[in-house]
């Protein structure tokens, strides 16, 4: 009885959806090109990667079904564990730092005049539109042991130069510092836009109640920006788990495996070793990790809201 009811409901829903599509067919037709491209270049590759993760990839023959072998290899792999640890450390340090500094920078910029706001908006957004390849090359020069900027500066304080990218205890830290010092342009722009939509009456009421500027920031601005904070945290976490360009250009994952990250490992497994089945399994595991963390972050941050 219950099942037939469910079928009836599903039938009704389908009918309703069909009716809606017929009614708005012009809008759906306009959406169709995007949908086709999305299907061809996103949906099909994602599904194919999932299927591939259960296969041994062969180039000129049919792939061989491998069951859970690829996943077993991923979980037993020391390199994957190291890459996961490095990527997690990178994410745990850079994401909170970037989101908090973006919030502080946006709050400071928001209180400025229009011209100054525009100037800082552009200045902080500039690194976002600059190629990471260029940024990584400049930073590699800044970390150079013999003539790099960082060793030059610490030399003023009588400190010994550091082999930033050449030692296992400093290489990952150097990559993290680089990411921390690149302004989180998207975050600043989004926070500024959200701040503009906070009602002035809230601040006026707080002023009447005797709140100072810091109290207003903590009690009104930050809570009102929670949706933006959730979005930026998720965005930044997903981006951090996919860190790649700076790794391949600055350290190649070394010294040893000190800066090996998940996407760099997936890239090597796929395009160096041509083990696409294993690389697909690594990608699916990465997808699941990001999914779990994102859902957790969303729930925790939204609960506070």
């Amino acid at each position: 009885m219950e099942i037939s009811g469910a079928f009836k409901n599903a039938g009704k829903n389908l009918k309703r959806t069909g009716k809606q599509i017929r009614k708005n067919y012009a809008a759906y037709l306009f959406l169709l090109p995007k949908l086709i491209l999305f299907t061809l270049f996103i949906a099909i590759p994602v599904v194919w990667a999932f299927v591939l993760s259960f296969q041994e990839y062969r180039i000129t023959e049919s792939n061989i079904f491998a069951g859970l072998d690829n996943y077993k290899q991923v979980l037993e792999s020391e390199a994957f564990r190291e890459a996961l640890l490095n990527t997690t450390i990178y994410t745990v340090v850079t994401v909170p730092f970037n989101v908090i500094t973006a919030l502080i920078a946006a709050s400071l910029i928001h209180s400025l005049g229009r011209f100054a706001q525009n100037f800082f908006r552009a200045a902080f957004y500039l690194p976002t539109v600059t190629s990471m390849v260029i940024i990584a090359m400049v930073w590699r020069w800044m970390y150079n042991y013999e003539f790099g900027l960082f060793n030059y500066v610490i030399g003023w304080f009588g400190m010994e130069p550091i082999n930033w990218l050449g030692q296992t205890n400093s290489a990952l830290m150097a990559i993290i510092i680089m990411q921390m010092l690149i302004p989180f342009g998207v975050g600043i722009i989004l926070y500024l836009a959200s701040m503009s939509s906070i009602s002035e009456s809230l601040y006026e009421a707080a002023t009447i109640d005797g709140a100072n500027a810091f109290q207003k920031w903590v009690r009104i601005t930050i809570p009102m920006l929670t949706p933006s904070t959730v979005y930026l945290t998720l965005l930044s976490t997903i981006g951090s788990f996919q860190v790649f360009t700076q790794i391949i250009l600055m350290t190649g994952g070394g010294p040893g495996y000190a800066t090996e990250t998940l996407v760099h490992l997936i890239y090597k497994t796929g395009f160096r070793d041509f083990e696409f089945g294993l690389a697909a399994a690594q990608s699916v595991v990465l997808f699941l990790i990001i999914l779990v963390i994102s859902v957790f972050q969303y729930r925790v941050l939204n609960r506070r809201n």
């Binding site: 590699r140 150079n144 042991y145 013999e146 130069p161 082999n163 990218l165 050449g166 190649g252 010294p255």
Partner: peptide
């Protein structure tokens, strides 16, 4: 040899 010897910087090594 410089401290950078044995690192991963191919271009930098050649330029030196």
């Amino acid at each position: 040899a410089p401290v950078s010897m044995g690192g991963a910087d191919v271009g930098g090594t050649f330029q030196a």
